[in-house]
Design a protein around this nucleic acid. Structure first.
Lengths: 354, 354
DNA sequence: ACAGCCGTAGCAAGCGCTTTCTACGAGGTA
DNA sequence: TACCTCGTAGAAAGCGCTTGCTACGGCTGT
């Protein structure tokens, strides 16, 4: 049937132990012996039995990357960057060193699925887990997550957050890279205020998500600082982080408050839908209404007009998370790093009419 | 340390064998016994040891989904849909039935990484593998892939292609869902020809990819049918499937052949870059130059003007691939199904000037 | 020249689960 | 009443690998 370690050992005329040591390279083996083993491996086309290996060694080379929405480039970029750092030495090398299996798991934003995936990864004795994107703020879920992560960490799994605020009271997490969503949101709204806008609509993300809350808080901080704290509620509409939601919410917003001169969207994808709604309403961007997004996804610069947004270094953050997960980089002091967000002013924002 | 099956067995006052059978639900166990076991599992917070289980059972619940570029929604949508069908029953259910670990692996379009991932999945004795997107046409790589897939299939792994043409001489693949890229490409160009365009630039994808070739062949079929077979080469520029490449290639194209009245892009992302280049060149879309894409990604309808493109049912195809991988759906006759592409005419194409 | 080392390789005991085969009591049947 | 069958549970043999420990030459040091 399938080729086993013993078969390779027989062919190379050594013991199984020696073959194992050659393959793992964690024990001195004479060069001539090594060659003989390697040749046998090639000739027999041997592939290590992962489960057996993981069982005996009590560790596996699986690394899980959890994302909220795999169809969203926001997550795809981070996941791809992380995977690049984890999946073996560069490319091609093949046999040899730290060939980890970096895999991404799509929770679809569902807390149950998030926990399910963590359990599944725990089953597999994953070497590390990277959690990307904002967290749900439901206390029950947070407690369940903390417990699950503690158990994972206990079993030796390295846990890294990427674009997610640190969990309180947990040292299970090796490192947390948090985006400065609040600061970015504040600067974006400040930019709009400087242009002269006073009535600013906000198409927010789903409730109970840290990302949503932080961006919104940044916006309100800026508004408050400008003495514009009234009407906050009526100019905010919540919805999922997708194009459709941006469209619907903006239509609703324009109906409810026709006097708005600017619309800030929860992210670039939402901003795209918002822009469509604005135009469909017979208004021009940015002459009649300014539109702004968040994230600076690749398509945002090609929107017409180009989207003013807040740039998040997604690739860099993902890569760093990958390195942290692999233990290739020392964690930031306190295990927490804040990643700056940069305002990108482009054509979709301009001073209001009049 | 960690809780084992034996611990649960002791607590439930049964043998390990019984606990295993309760957990797998593949053997009659008295209801009262089952309850006792389940309670013990809960109380001890037991999590099955995946490697041990896979080793003993000679199968695992890992399902791999290979994608060329995880940051591209084209793949994200398919992968997400497939993962949705594979990752357990709906959501939440938790304990019990077919909880598979559906994971996506990002090859970045590199043939080496593609093979590496397959080896890694083979190591893990994956239950199934879904390969998405076009294949590389390099004969050496194709042979290597065929050999690897045969070995995987031999070991009991179900293999499904999604958006990839079937491999010749291989029955390792359970089912191949191929997009009708050629037909879609042909209809798109026919649409342009009907509008009156005669000089049509083509910003193609990377060479040696089936997707690239098929779309281009469809385009040329249409051109040829209209008696426009000259200049094919000079009006075609190749590049990667990304925004930047579309931008650069289009600039090059406009320089080389200023008389073109339409630009067809390899896909929507490339079309976005192409559109930017056209505008930067001082030309209007669609008045001066028509622009068209392929795939109909979510953002395409929000482009300004809305992008004429070819719709591929990515979500449906991904979901179907997931079901086929799980054996929840019977493969199409011959293991091959062609998935239709639908022309979506929108604002970015119009008759040429004059 | 002999003890002690170092460099290599083998032995064998698991790792935690699955599964075949066996065991045993309770009903059903003759 | 004796025999079978059915339903349920346990015993135990691995699954293929890793690794602590032991073994065995050839060198070095005195």
């Amino acid at each position: 049937m399938t080729v086993t370690l013993a078969d390779v050992a027989a062919r190379a005329r050594v013991s199984p132990a020696t073959v194992s040591r050659v393959l793992n390279g964690n024990y001195p083996v004479a060069a001539s012996t090594r060659d003989r083993v390697l040749r046998a491996v090639d000739e027999l086309d041997y592939v290590l039995n992962g489960p057996a290996s993981s069982l005996a060694a009590a560790t596996s080379d699986l690394v899980g990357i959890l994302v909220n929405d795999i169809a969203d480039p926001f997550f795809g970029i981070m996941a791809g960057a992380a995977q690049g750092e984890i999946g073996g030495p560069g490319d091609g090398s093949g046999r040899g060193g730290g060939e980890k299996l970096a895999v991404v798991c799509n929770t679809g934003g569902s807390p149950e699925r998030e926990l399910t995936y963590l359990t599944l990864l725990q089953r597999q004795r994953a070497a590390a887990v990277v959690l990307t994107g904002g967290a749900l703020e439901d206390p029950a879920h947070q407690a369940a997550m903390a417990a699950k992560l503690a158990k994972l960490a206990d079993a030796g799994t390295r846990i890294v957050f990427c674009g997610r605020p640190p969990l309180p009271d947990t040292d299970a997490v090796v490192a947390a890279l948090a985006f400065d969503n609040r600061g970015g949101g504040r600067r974006l709204t400040e930019h709009l205020l400087e242009l002269g806008h006073r009535r600013i609509g906000y198409v927010a993300g789903p409730l109970e998500r840290t990302t949503t809350r932080h961006r919104l808080e940044g916006h309100r901080e800026a508004m408050k600082a400008a003495g514009l704290y009234a009407d906050e509620e009526s100019l905010t509409v919540h919805g999922p982080y997708d194009r459709r939601s941006g469209y619907d919410a903006t239509l609703e917003l324009l109906r409810r408050a026709p006097e708005v001169t600017a619309v800030v969207a929860a992210n670039d994808t939402v901003a795209l839908g918002a822009g469509a709604a604005v135009r469909e309403h017979g208004l021009r961007i940015p002459e009649d209404v300014s539109v702004a997004g968040f994230d600076d996804l690749p398509f945002s610069v090609d929107a017409v007009p180009a989207l003013t947004t807040v740039r998040l270094p997604l690739f860099e953050a993902g890569a760093r998370a990958g390195r942290l997960a692999m233990g290739k980089e020392t964690p930031p002091p306190g295990g927490i790093a804040t990643i700056e967000a940069e305002l990108m002013v482009r054509g979709s924002t301009a001073p209001p009419r009049g």
